[in-house]
Amino acid sequence: MSILVTGGAGYIGSHTCVELLNAGYDVVIADSFANSHPDTIKKVEAITNKTVTHYDVDLLDSSQLDPIFSKHKIDAVIHFAGLKAVGESVEKPLYYYETNLLSTINLCKTMEAHGVYKLVFSSSATVYGMPDQVPLKETAPLSALNPYGRTKIFIEDILRDLAASNDEWRISLLRYFNPIGAHKSGRIGEQPNGIPNNLMPYITQVAAGVREELAVFGADYPTEDGTCIRDYIHVVDLALGHLKAVEKLDSYTGAEAFNLGTGQGYSVLEVISAFEQASGVTIPKRIVERRAGDAPVSYADPSKAEKELQWKAERTLAEMCEDSWRWQSSRSHT
C-alpha cells in the first residue's frame, strides 16, 4: 500500500514516515522544504533502512501534483503540508489563508481526478479556541483565536462538505494537542527556523546555550502554579495515531474528527522541571506578560480515538523530555 505524505520532511511528518515505513507501507513524500530540511529524508531512510521517493513540490501549483499521482498508485494521503506559526498568521493572515486552504483544495481536486478518496488531515486543538470546559471532546464548540486556527476550522469544513458530496470519501481529521519529543535515535526531531514558537524546542535551545533564558508567558493564570496547562504528547505516539487512522479509514464513511492527546495536562513549570530532571541542566527562566489568546487550561479527552482507532498515547513526560534533549544534544555533534 502506497501513502503520499505531504509535508513529510517536517517534524510530525518525518516521524510518521518512519512509522509507516516500519509498518511495511511504501511512502512518497511531497514537500516544498519551506519549513523543513531535505536532509531529514535521508535520516528517515537511515533509521528505517528503506528508500523513500520524494518530490520538491509546492501544493499551490496543482500542476506539480498531477505527475505524482500519475506515476505512483497512491492508496491514501496524509496531509501535513501547511503554515503553522500562530504569531505569523496574525501578521500575515492572507498568506495563511491562501497557503493552507488553496494547497488543500488543490490536493483534493487532484486526488478526485485520480480516484483517490482516502485522506488523513493534520488538524489541531487550536480549533477549540478558548475552551469552556476540559477535557475537550470532539463535540466541543469550534472557534479559533487566530488565522492559523481558523484555517484548520475552514479546512475541516471543506473536507466535511467534500465527504458529504461523494460517499467514496473517507477522511480522518486528527486534532493534535501539543507534540514534543523526538525519535529515540536522536536523528530526527523538531527543528524550528528562527525563534521557536513552541515550549520544548525553546527549553532545549536554552539548555544547549543557543538562547540565554526561557520566557514564561504569564504566571497569574487560575492554575495551581499560575502557568498554562497543556496536553503534551510524544511525537512518536502522534505518528502512530496516523498509522492507526490510515488503517481504520475503511471502517467509516464521511469525515470523522479524533483528538490525539494523552488526556493529561501539565503546566509550563512542570514541563521545565521534568526537563531539568531528565537532562540534569538547569533552565534559566523569566516570567513575562501573558500572550494574547492563550487559554489557561487545555487537554484532550482521547477516548474516541482509543475506542474507534484502537490508539492510545503510551509515552511519559519524562520520555518526551529525554528524547527532546537527546535530539538537541546530537545536533551539536553533527
Rank of each mutant, 00 (worst) to 15 (best):
I3A: 09
L4V: 03
L4Q: 01
T6F: 10
G10K: 06
G10V: 02
I12W: 01
S14C: 12
T16K: 07
T16P: 08
V18A: 11
E19D: 11
L20T: 04
A23H: 11
G24Y: 08
I29G: 07
A30S: 15
D31G: 08
D31N: 04
S32M: 06
S32Q: 08
S32T: 06
F33A: 05
A34N: 05
S36I: 08
S36E: 00
I41H: 04
I41Y: 12
E45K: 03
A46G: 03
A46E: 13
I47P: 04
N49A: 15
V57T: 13
D58V: 03
D58H: 02
S63Y: 00
D66H: 10
I68W: 07
K71V: 00
H79T: 10
H79N: 13
A81I: 01
L83M: 07
A85I: 08
V86L: 08
G87L: 07
K92V: 03
K92G: 03
Y96R: 03
E98H: 14
S103W: 02
S103A: 14
L107T: 00
M111D: 05
F121Q: 12
S123F: 00
S124V: 03
S124Y: 10
A125L: 04
Y128N: 09
M130Y: 09
V134N: 15
T139C: 04
A144H: 07
K152G: 07
K152T: 02
F154M: 10
R160Q: 12
D161M: 12
S165L: 09
E168A: 15
E168H: 14
R175E: 07
Y176H: 11
Y176F: 15
P179W: 03
G181W: 09
A182M: 05
K184I: 02
R187N: 01
R187M: 14
Q191R: 14
N193L: 11
G194P: 01
I195C: 02
L199G: 04
Y202S: 14
Y202E: 13
I203R: 02
A207S: 13
A207Q: 10
R211F: 14
R211V: 00
A215F: 06
Y221N: 12
E224D: 14
G226D: 03
R230H: 09
V235N: 08
H242L: 01
L243V: 13
K248N: 06
L249A: 04
L249G: 02
S251V: 04
S251C: 03
T253E: 13
F258M: 09
F258I: 01
Y266T: 12
S267H: 05
L269N: 15
I272C: 07
I272K: 11
I272S: 11
F275H: 01
S279P: 08
T282D: 10
I283R: 03
K285E: 01
R286M: 06
R286S: 15
R290K: 14
A292I: 08
V297K: 14
A300H: 09
L309V: 10
Q310H: 12
K312E: 06
K312N: 12
A313F: 06
E314H: 03
R315P: 05
T316V: 02
E322D: 10
W327Y: 15
W327Q: 01
Q328Y: 10
S330R: 09
R331W: 04
